[in-house]
Amino acid sequence: MKNNRLSFSFLILAVTVFAIHQSGISTHAADADAGSEAHAEDGHGHDGHDDEHAADSHGDDGHGDSHGGGHGHDESNLVHGNASTGLKDILEFKPDLAVFSLLVFTLLVLALWKFAFGPIISGLNAREQNIQSQIATAKEAAGKAEAMLADYEAKLANAANEANEIVAEGRRDAETTRDRIVAEAEEAAQREKERAINEIEIAKNAALQAVAEQATDMAVGLAGDIIGSELDRDDHEQLIQQALSNLDG
């Protein structure tokens, strides 16, 4: 790719050199020299009369000789004829051109000011003011948004706290309730137990009484049978009491 470009450039260069060569011959011939071959080549057929010119100028105190080397003076080139001394002065000051240039410049300043630069200046300023006010508006909006954001963030944080609180409270309530229920249950169980124990006690006592009475009766009966005497009521009672206290003991 790079090579291609390089060779292309050289091709263009070569063509240009050739083209200049061609035009160079004619330009050179034209400007410079009376009687050079190149001039004749151009098909102007100047041979004869160039010689004549050469002869003309050589006739006068040898001035032609001083221009050897193909840089002779062409008498038919009147472009710079009757030159004044300032013609070849590079610092020559031409008043007419200066005045004209100043005039053109002044008119250009005024015309551009009126038709182009004045409107452009005000347009640019208007644009800048627009931009500045837009920036100010944007800044204001951004400030507002920031404040709102902070507000919402604060609110959000509050809400989270609240939620935590609620959860904690719920937990606390639940715990209290649980404790209470447990305590109540325990209490109730205790009461049931106590009652059951009482009832058992009573039942036991009643059973013991019954057992004692039956045993006494049986014993009395047996004893009466054995001894053949009947025990009176008081003896009866006394025996029961005795048996009971034995049982107790």
Partner: peptide
Amino acid sequence: SKFMVIEVFLAVLLLFVFGRLSKKVRNGEP
């Protein structure tokens, strides 16, 4: 002279180009 012609041509060119530009810039739009 040649330079006078060039100067006038340049002046007209500048007026034309920047006159057109001014119409686009005038209203303050980019």
